[in-house]
Design a protein around this nucleic acid. Sequence first.
DNA 1: GGCTACACCAATCCACAACC
DNA 2: GGTTGTGGATTGGTGTAGCC
Length: 200
Amino acid sequence: MTAVFSHGRLRLYLLKLLDDGPKHGYELIRLLEDRFLGLYAPSAGTIYPRLQRLEVEGLVTHTAAGGRKVYEITEGGRAELRQRADELATLETDITASVQDLSALAGEIQTEVRGSVRDLKRELREAARQTRQTRWDRPVPPPAPGPAASPLLTEFDQRLAAFTMEVGGLVRAHRLSDNQLRTAIRVLDGALDGLRRLLR
DNA sequence: GGCTACACCAATCCACAACC
DNA sequence: GGTTGTGGATTGGTGTAGCC
């Protein structure tokens, strides 16, 4: 597991966010998610222990409000921010670069998903063409009653296209993490393999 | 209006891996 | 070895939609 924040940088960034104003834990998670355009969001198990640790060190303090713990930076926390201003500037630069990298990766995965769907559609068309060809080449018993192959293929085509658009929309809206996309690709690959076996 | 089911929010605990 | 970052499981509170 590759850490997004290197050693000691998450706490620095939490101090930076709290320097903008008091916030509760969940709000900090959402802010980080927004900062990374939805491509990364720290889990609660990451944020709350850090906040507790910062409080023990006297860098933040919290007040209970409406069942929530609202954290606020202390003068000690601001002093650390001033002391590590250069490191914070570097961190901001790194985060900006990371967001660009993650966006590029999402784009690559999107292209890969589209490519896989395109391959599947091409193989289905080819399979349908061969099926039709086979029917012409050798005598076949009278076709069983039922829907013709073409309308079904069209429907299949439409569903694949709709799914491609759906995935593309989610990626553009940054509502899919790279891990989710990787999982989607693995699932899709499995489905493609199953369909290929079916078509053989 | 009251009850129930469900979704979401907020927080805690725990285990694990990587870093210093 | 201690610290830090991470994600998952879990819990408790709250709001809301649906049903009677």
